[in-house]
Simulated assay, not measured.
Amino acid sequence: MLAVYAAAPRPDDPLAALRIGSRPEPEVPAGHVAVTVRAASLNMHDLWTLRGVGLSADRFPMILGMDGAGTLDDGSPVVLHSMIRSAGWMGDEALDPGRTCLSGGYQGTFAERVVVPVANALPLPVELTFDEAACLGTAWLTAYRMLFVASGLRPGQTILVQGCSGGVSTALVRLGAAAGFRVVATGRSEAKRALARELGACVAVEPGARLPERVDGVFDSVGRATWPHSVRALVPGGVLVTCGATTGEPDRTELQHIFIKHLRIVGTTMGTRAELADLVRFCVSTGVRPVVGARLPMTDAREAFASMRDGDTRGKTVLVPPS
């Protein structure tokens, strides 16, 4: 079958590890199902996998892709939950120390077929397309958990979303606006700021710019480049929710601001199967949908990865297998 995969870890040149070619058809163990992939979406995690982050050398070659949607062998449409709990774990999957994920412990979704545990294939309602559903399992689920589970904030409050162009940040703007938050966003270019306003942001400014007012919550996936601004933008008692550091670890912790202003710093990533089911229902009931910035055949995966590496994205990038 055709697949997009990492041949070996390449920390300094991730795209040199990228291959597009034939891989063996997956076997289907007991308790698992095979899914014919109709659409899959890119995440930053895929670039980290090409670099070998969090994956031992003996796990390569590894088919990339954490997110996807498709059909079971009986034709039933499904959306995939990419976090896989360890045997016997009964709590929150995100807190499971033995958890794994697609393109980690399991081969990923950038292929014509993927095998997952039965519980990781959720029914896909007719209101959502395969492309839309393929964007939900990582970036949108992370944003959903950040906003509705981790932050403790309420609709009507004001939030700041840093770096509005990628999957998590665009999801945060869309979800926040749909739920009744007042959303402020930052973007490096006028095009990115215009996108934020399109998605529902009340205000969009340059990174680090003075805000019209301090905010109740900040959502930061950027790290070093935005951290000081994120901390200083908060009202006393505010919360900063972080899910990543695409520009690296912050140079300064801003500890004085944190303890003097009684701020909360909360870390989270991805989410549970139940939260994904809630997110799907939220999309159906509100009409909110992911922004698909690019839709490409899997044979053009190199172009898609280069755009993500260079920060030249607008929402989510979807890959589709050959028809």
Rank of each mutant, 00 (worst) to 15 (best):
A3Y: 05
A8Y: 13
D13T: 11
A16V: 09
A17I: 04
S22T: 15
S22M: 11
S22A: 15
P26F: 03
P26H: 12
G31F: 04
V33N: 03
V33P: 00
A34T: 09
L42H: 08
M44T: 11
L50H: 08
R51Y: 02
G52R: 10
V53Y: 12
A57M: 03
F60H: 07
L64W: 05
L72S: 05
M83Y: 03
I84M: 04
R85I: 03
G88T: 14
W89G: 01
G91W: 08
D92M: 04
D92R: 14
E93W: 00
E93M: 01
D96G: 10
S103C: 15
Q107W: 01
R113E: 08
P117M: 10
P117N: 11
A121Y: 02
L122E: 00
L124C: 00
T129G: 14
E132T: 12
A134K: 08
T138M: 14
A139M: 01
R145V: 14
R145H: 11
L147G: 09
G152P: 07
G152M: 13
G152L: 11
R154V: 12
R154S: 14
P155L: 13
G156Q: 09
Q157S: 13
L160A: 07
C164F: 11
S165I: 05
T170W: 08
R174C: 07
G176D: 08
F181S: 06
R182P: 01
R182Y: 00
R182I: 07
A185W: 00
A185C: 04
T186C: 02
R188G: 15
A191K: 10
C202T: 13
V203H: 07
A204R: 07
E206P: 00
R210N: 06
L211M: 12
E213G: 04
V215S: 03
V215Q: 08
D220V: 04
S221I: 09
V222W: 02
G223A: 09
P228C: 07
S230P: 00
R232I: 01
R232Y: 00
V239D: 04
L240V: 15
C243W: 07
C243E: 09
G244T: 13
T247P: 03
T247Q: 03
P250L: 05
D251L: 10
D251C: 00
R252M: 04
R252Q: 15
T253C: 02
Q256L: 15
Q256F: 14
I265F: 11
T268D: 10
T269V: 15
G271T: 04
T272H: 07
T272P: 02
T272G: 10
E275K: 10
E275H: 08
L279F: 09
V280W: 02
V280N: 03
V280S: 05
T286Y: 05
V288E: 11
V292C: 14
L296R: 15
T299F: 01
A301E: 04
F305L: 14
S307W: 01
D310M: 00
G311S: 09
T313V: 15
R314I: 07
K316P: 05
L319F: 07
